[in-house]
Design a protein around this nucleic acid. Sequence first.
DNA 1: CTGAAAGCGCTAACAA
DNA 2: TTGTTAGCGCTTTCAG
Lengths: 324, 324
Amino acid sequence: MSDVARVAGVSSATVSYVLSGKRPVTEETRRSVESAIEQLGFSLNPVARSLRTGKSTMVALVVPDIANPFYALLARSIQDELRGRGYHVLVSSTGARRDEEEALLHEVVHQRFAGVVMTPFRLATDAFDVLRSAGIPAVVSADVSFGDVDLVTPDADGAVRETLAHVAATGRRRIGVLAGPLDATGGDPRLERIREHAAGAGLRIDREHVVHGEHTREAGAEGFERLMRARTRPEAVLCGNDITAVGAMDTAERLGLDIPGDVSLVGHDDIEFASLVRPRLTTIRYPAREVGRAAAGLLLEQIDGRTRRRTVRVAAAFVARASV
Amino acid sequence: MSDVARVAGVSSATVSYVLSGKRPVTEETRRSVESAIEQLGFSLNPVARSLRTGKSTMVALVVPDIANPFYALLARSIQDELRGRGYHVLVSSTGARRDEEEALLHEVVHQRFAGVVMTPFRLATDAFDVLRSAGIPAVVSADVSFGDVDLVTPDADGAVRETLAHVAATGRRRIGVLAGPLDATGGDPRLERIREHAAGAGLRIDREHVVHGEHTREAGAEGFERLMRARTRPEAVLCGNDITAVGAMDTAERLGLDIPGDVSLVGHDDIEFASLVRPRLTTIRYPAREVGRAAAGLLLEQIDGRTRRRTVRVAAAFVARASV
DNA sequence: CTGAAAGCGCTAACAA
DNA sequence: TTGTTAGCGCTTTCAG
């Protein structure tokens, strides 16, 4: 930068101000600075800038598993929204482990990230306080609130009611749930929502028909097997996400069970392969791209100075296919 | 850090040396420094460190599309390998656009990244020269060499021969290819490999049976339709990747074509949903996790000082399922 | 074995 | 409207 200043015959402060526009500069000096920049192929060193300002252009996206297509799509969406504003997105998978979640959050404050959007899973609900006190914009994308942070969260009651009505209309009465792990922060809101609306649809959920496990294909397969080996089988199973639903299908195939003949299956998220498996999976769609747009929007608002906490709800939707 | 120095009663230089181990320190000073660090909850500021050393702990992973499960898995694999060494992985999608590829590469040298692993698509083959001269470790994961850079590349001849023999064994003779775009750097090596081994398997590829398009589901659907409307139809179609193969299946369904009854289909990569679609997709597996491991390994070697260029080949494998 | 001090490249008071 | 300068937090030479 001092090279530029020398060539342009001004001070380095002026170069800085030309670049940032933070104070008026005569047309003439601007031009000479710009031509010097051009001539030398100069560009700002973002590291030095970060050190000085305590802000970087990195935004962290912290998710349980980037190999889950829902989060992959979320990542692309957020990246698309933020790139235009000059931010770079660093994606990290936590494996839904609490220690990783904490470590990543620590890294964020430590590296003075410009912001973070996170889907926490086992984090304490006050974990975001440190971000707030460090002045780092944060938004949580989750079913459940994590304290005093911006939130993008599904508006799913309607979709769940619709789903349950649809299941009931096929004559099913006893339903099971492949829920998330018991030690997830805030429990499993998807399970709670189903519980809440089940009776209204004339459906019952026996205690032994709720099994808990990770949101993985293997855990889904295992949980579904437990359900199928229960004393009385549920007639329909609602899964924590589409991936556990695919695991359930693995088990169904192995056990020679027909879906939906012997048991109905409903997923959650509507990732691309929900419509690719056979039978095509009936599911509750939660649109990753819109979630990403909303999260990026909230983050940008915070970066631009908003301090009051906001929540945005993204509509979930019932998608009828062939597994019910 | 100066706080730590004060509390420990030493200079900040000593604190730095205790942390880095770059020069001997008496057991006693080490202990007092360490307890001061503990007491103050101090940790190094990576930004300042980067500014001073010109190196960061960020590694960029630049891929065409993070929403493609192959790259998502690659990302997770690389992240897993690198985390233990203290590196953070920044994932970026280029959309296979040349300008994005160039911009990201520029960002990498500019931000003084610790390294980059990239799957380039339309980049000039000398684009990595700037990294070499900037001393930034780089590895390319691609079918084709991009100049003087470390390379992770498939060892696929055996798998392709096997695939073609399998296709031929079902009595198919005229095969088509859903190839990548014409303006990709280095053309389409997957297409070339198929061409190379076709005759040996008694297969022929008519000129009108090679269509070019992006590696997307939509482009796959469209390309397959062109193939199916050709004067003479190919009896088997090999696809650039599993995603274009799914696109082909979309079209087959729309046109009422049976796979493999009317036409066989072969994919490439073996992403998770290749085994989920119906019919299950026969494909040429390229193992993302191993590719990631190899790439991370090469990168780490460079970071640790190796300068001679290396290539590692990762074995591809024929996976027979139900679409041939 | 340890300390003093320069300086990485930038921004933002403060002065002019 | 522009310049001077301190200093962000670290690493590393040079002295001791």
